[in-house]
Amino acid sequence: MKAAVLGAGSWGTALANVLAENGHDVCLWARSEAVADEINTDHTNERYLPNVRLHEGLQATSDAMSAMSESDMVVLAVPSASLPEVAPLLSAIPRHAILTHAVKGFVRPANRRISEYILEQDVALAARLAVLSGPSHAEEVVAHLPTTVVAASTSRSTAEHVQDAFMNDAFRVYTQSDLVGVELGGTLKNIIALGVGLIDGLGLGDNTKAALMTRGLAEITRLGAALGAAPLTFSGLSGVGDLIVTCTSRHSRNYRAGRLLATGQPLADVLTAIGMAVEGVGTTYAAAELARVHGIEMPITAAIERVLQGLVTPSEAVSRLMRRGKNHEMEDLAGQTLTVQWGLP
Rank of each mutant, 00 (worst) to 15 (best):
S82D: 11
E219Q: 07
G275T: 00
N190G: 10
V180G: 11
T175A: 09
T233W: 14
R108K: 10
Q121R: 13
L232W: 06
T158C: 15
A34Q: 08
V131K: 00
G295I: 04
N22Y: 02
G280A: 05
A317E: 00
V52N: 00
H96G: 13
Y285D: 02
A124C: 06
S315E: 12
L261C: 11
Y285E: 07
I244Q: 14
S10R: 09
S155Q: 11
V86L: 10
T100K: 05
G134F: 07
L179W: 07
V312A: 02
L28Y: 03
A3P: 06
Q336E: 05
A8H: 06
L89R: 08
A226M: 10
A8M: 00
R156E: 14
G9P: 13
K209D: 00
A34N: 03
L58D: 05
V141R: 08
M1N: 01
H101S: 12
S235W: 13
Q163H: 13
L19W: 07
A302P: 02
T233V: 12
A77C: 10
L125R: 09
R256D: 01
S249Y: 10
P135F: 01
L179P: 12
A14L: 02
A317T: 02
D206L: 09
M322D: 02
M298E: 01
R306L: 08
Y117W: 10
N45R: 06
